[in-house]
Design a protein around this nucleic acid. Structure first.
Length: 847
RNA sequence: GCCGGUGUGGCGGAAUGGUAGACGCAGGGGAUUCAAAAUCCCCCGUUGGUGACAACGUGCCGGUUCGAGUCCGGCCACCGGUACCA
């Protein structure tokens, strides 16, 4: 008998699959198609354990579907544009292209030994001109259909490096390289009109039955449909052109509690006041400091400045309210102006307290006639309250009812209009960076922004660029930038902004159906393969990537690139947890954190004795230096061990803290399976009277493992496989039955450990490849047992167990329970008040 | 701040509202061996008890239920997202 030697068998079977083209996806009408896709990786340079976990999960599904008679499409590619390549260029001088393709080659060489059932013939990288050229064609089509437009938007501006910063590059409000305080600055940028689809993207969530509820809920909250009132406060002696301030509110019922009007520092009125009032200008400049993220804006100290302007309350001409400029009001949402009701909004309450503004209660707990507020009173929208200063609807009503009544009242009295708004903002796609898909637009003095002619696509990125100066090298590349207008032929300039990398990942799933097509997708191929039947990826993509992809599929349908049926592209979604690892950090001379590799840290200290701060359990990321790569495990134990191990320990949707202890135990288990299979291969005779027990165990294992795989319960499925292996090992059943059971074991293991399974399958006389052999089916009739064990509880606490016939009726179960010695002892003569018998489950005696 | 999630032995975790801790890791004991490796068997939540057994126990506080890790309300801690990280 040979010992278990993964390095030999894994290479052998991978070659066999390649020779047979087992995983090549070809359209076929005699089998149902199944498209399984894992979110493609960013080529960071090294495959890490998170990738192994993600791709192994997808592989289990893909291989299982192959065994159950599906025509499987399981492709892989690279999300290859992005900032890290430019950062590497700045740090080391290596060109982003060289960096990216080098990383892809290395990661692919790490990925291939895993034995994933991928159709590598469909591989592409988003930085391939063949891909991004088609993306440029999509841009032009979207633009033509009005799905893309230009407007001003704020970016993080580093005033020292004179460059735009990504949110990630802003640390504590300062530029990551220069350390300068970041400012918010407006630039003209391109936008996808995703807001046109707000309502549809929201309502269509209801049909996504095979998506996690949490993802749908997050998307729903993100889209943020709200019903409210839009109305104007008339201005008293306002500046030229500003006779009113338009406000959107979701709580018009609190209008009688208004104590101020607030406008965004980016509101047109604020800008006009800023022009000739130095105090206001200074305040607005202060408000524009810091990053653009919602988190930074919301967490910043709430600041306001009284502009001196006054507006009239819509219900009372004599009631005047002050107009404040406030740093927490976003120009992007609603009208960029609000009215503050401090009594019923905590933020307004704090603002009013700080600036000594009145706090006027509008409603109180039901029945109350007065309130004394030490903080804002904010009941749930469905909780009934008593209105003290209501003006519409009942005195006692809940928030939702009151809002509707208030909207009706205001509309009837000409005060404003009920409107439905969405929180979802249009998607800004312009990036002031090199390593992305060039926006195919030419700026002509006479024709304006003109799309490039499609026959000139792809607009390739120039290779001769340098990164020695901060900023986008395309801006200072005259021979690339200068061109002629496709419309009038005059001298013109290319747009030097590139696209957000989320654009690249918003349609790659469609491109995989026809990666060589000379249009974005081939209609027939897309019609056959779409939708993705099972999409698998990290929960961190719950909102942006998945929402953008849902929008893109709709936009591609509108522009004729995808069929109507594919406008919701992912039939089922599974979000797996992350593989995390401790972060080791020290503080650098400038106070910024410095990260250290796990290999450089021993017992919480660096080699020079410096104490290291240990941050537990953070997402693996290259910049934090806490990435563990799979090379060691693969080299020592092989792919099957790595695959089994990443699936075995934790539920797939949960985060796992990486620890390598246990990989060796997995290897021992696989070696044991191999040994058992070899023993069985040469086994003769045996005790046929034991066959039924082994068969029952086998059919139970088939049922449990099949259920486990179908429900992403891989860890539970593996636990059952341990149990079945033990039963098989101990069984004295006949040789033929044991051989059959061992072949079934190999099959059940094959999605997780395909190489070992092939080896065992062949050893035990299985026909062809186990990979393509039909999945075993559990025989229900062999699962039935004659007797079951039932626990007996007294007042919910387990006191005894009784063995009863599987088909026993309630009365006889009750009689058995009441006759049990332990039960009698525990009852100690007490007469039960009630006895609950749940057949096949439990007996509970209530005393 | 806001939105979403998670919390169970020394560790990873299991458990359609029905025996809490399956399975695995680590640990302890034993068999085999000249010895070791490998392998096989047993024990392994806490406290008390020689033991049979008893009490307690699923982040904290409260509730619903014959019965709660699971459902509901309120907290705490951690993780993800927060529109230019991917």
């Amino acid at each position: 008998m040979s010992t278990y030697s993964p390095s030999d068998i894994e290479a052998k079977w991978q070659a066999a699959w390649a020779d047979a083209e087992t995983f090549k996806a070809v359209r076929s009408d005699d089998k149902p198609k199944y498209y399984v896709l894992e979110m493609f990786p960013y080529p960071s340079g090294n495959l890490h354990m998170g990738h192994v976990r993600n791709y192994t999960m997808g592989d289990v599904i893909a291989r299982y579907k192959l065994s159950t008679g599906h025509n499987v499409l399981h492709p892989m590619g690279w999300d290859a544009f992005g900032m890290p390549a430019e950062n590497a260029a700045m740090a080391t001088g290596i060109h982003p292209k060289e960096y990216t393709y080098g990383n892809i080659a290395h990661m692919k060489s790490q990925m291939r030994p895993l034995g994933l059932s991928l159709d590598w013939s469909r591989e592409f990288a988003t930085c391939d001109p063949e891909y991004y050229g088609q993306q440029q064609a999509l841009f032009i089509d979207f633009l033509e259909k009005g799905l893309i437009y230009r407007k001003k938007a704020v970016v993080n501006w580093d005033p020292i490096d004179m460059t735009v910063l990504a949110n990630e590059q802003v640390i504590d409000g300062k530029g990551w390289r220069s350390g300068a305080e970041v400012e918010r600055r407006e630039l003209v940028q391109w936008f996808f009109k995703i807001s046109d689809y707000s309502d549809e993207l929201l309502t269509a969530l209801d049909n996504l039955d095979n998506w996690p509820a949490k993802v749908k809920l997050m998307q729903s909250n993100w889209i943020g449909k709200s019903r409210g009132l839009q109305f104007g406060f008339s201005m008293i002696d306002g500046p030229e052109g500003h006779d009113r301030v338009d406000v959107y509110t979701t709580r018009p019922d609190t209008l009688n509690g208004a104590s101020f009007v607030g406008i965004s520092p980016d509101h047109p009125l604020a800008k006009q006041l800023e022009a000739d009032n130095p105090e206001i200008a200074a305040f607005c400049a202060e408000c524009r400091k810091g990053g653009t993220t919602a988190e930074a804006v919301e967490k910043a100290e709430k600041l306001g400045l009284d502009t001196g302007l006054r507006v009239r309350h819509p219900f009372d001409n004599a009631w005047e309210l002050p107009v404040y400029i406030a740093n927490f009001i976003l120009m992007d949402y609603g009208t960029g102006a609000i009215f503050g009701c401090p009594a019923h909004d905590q933020r307004d309450f704090e603002f009013a307290s700080k600036y000594d503004l009145p706090i006027i209660p509008v409603f109180a707990e039901v029945g109350a006639t007065d309130v004394n507020l030490t903080e804002a009173f904010v009941p749930g929208r469905t909780d009934k309250v008593t209105y003290l200063k209501g003006f519409a609807g009942e005195t006692d009503q809940n928030g939702d009812e009151a809002v509707e009544a208030a909207v009706d009242f205001c509309e009837a009295n000409g005060v404003g209009q009920g409107v439905t708004k969405f929180r979802l903002r249009d998607w800004g796609l312009s990036r002031q960076r090199y390593w992305g898909c060039p926006i195919p637009i030419i700026h002509c003095d006479s024709c304006g922004a003109v799309p490039e002619a499609k026959e000139n696509l792809p607009i390739r990125l120039p290779d001769d660029v340098s990164f020695d100066i901060p900023g986008n090298p395309l801006d200072r590349h005259p021979t690339w930038r200068d061109c002629t207008c496709p419309k009038c032929g005059a001298a013109a300039q290319r747009e030097t902004d590139t696209m957000d990398t989320f654009v690249d990942s918003s349609w790659y799933y469609a491109r995989f159906t026809s990666p060589g097509a000379t249009t974005p997708v081939d209609a027939d191929e897309a019609a056959y393969w779409m939708n993705v039947d099972q999409y698998i990826g990290g929960i961190e993509h719950a909102i942006l990537h998945l929402l953008y992809s849902r929008f893109f599929a709709r936009a591609m349908n509108m522009t004729g690139h995808l069929p109507e049926a594919a406008s919701e592209p992912f039939n089922a979604l599974f979000t797996q947890g992350m593989v995390t690892h401790e972060i080791y950090q020290t503080k650098g001379a400038d106070g910024r954190p410095v990260y250290h590799f796990p290999s450089d840290v021993t017992d919480g200290k660096l080699a020079d004795g410096t104490d290291v701060d240990i941050i537990p359990s953070a997402k693996m990321s290259k910049s934090k230096k806490n990435v563990v790569d799979p090379d060691d495990i693969l080299a020592t134990f092989g792919a099957d061990t790595a695959r089994w191990f990443v699936l075995s320990d934790s539920p797939p949707e949960r985060d796992v803290e990486w620890t390598a202890s246990g990989a060796e135990a997995t290897h021992k288990h696989l070696a044991r399976v191999w040994r058992i299979a070899n023993d069985i291969a040469t086994l003769e005779g045996g005790d046929a009277s034991q066959d039924a027990d082994l068969e029952r165990a086998m059919h139970k294992a088939i049922q449990d493992v099949t259920n486990g795989v179908e429900s992403f319960g891989f860890n539970a499925a593996i636990a059952k496989l341990y149990g079945f292996t033990g039963a098989l090992s101990k069984s004295k059943a006949s040789a033929a039955t044991k051989r059959e059971a061992a072949r079934v074991l190999a099959q059940l293991m094959s999605p997780m450990t395909p190489h070992l399974s092939e080896e065992i399958w062949t050893l035990l006389g299985g026909e062809g490849l186990v990979t393509t052999a039909p999945w075993p089916v559990a025989d229900e009739s062999k699962l039935v047992e004659d007797t079951v064990t039932m626990p007996v509880q007294i007042n919910g606490k387990r006191k005894a167990e009784i063995a009863v016939a599987a088909d026993a009726d309630k009365a006889s179960v009750e009689a058995l329970a009441m006759a049990d010695q332990k039960v009698l002892r525990a009852l100690d003569g007490t007469t039960p008040k009630k006895i609950i018998v749940v057949p096949g489950r439990i007996v509970n005696i209530v005393i």
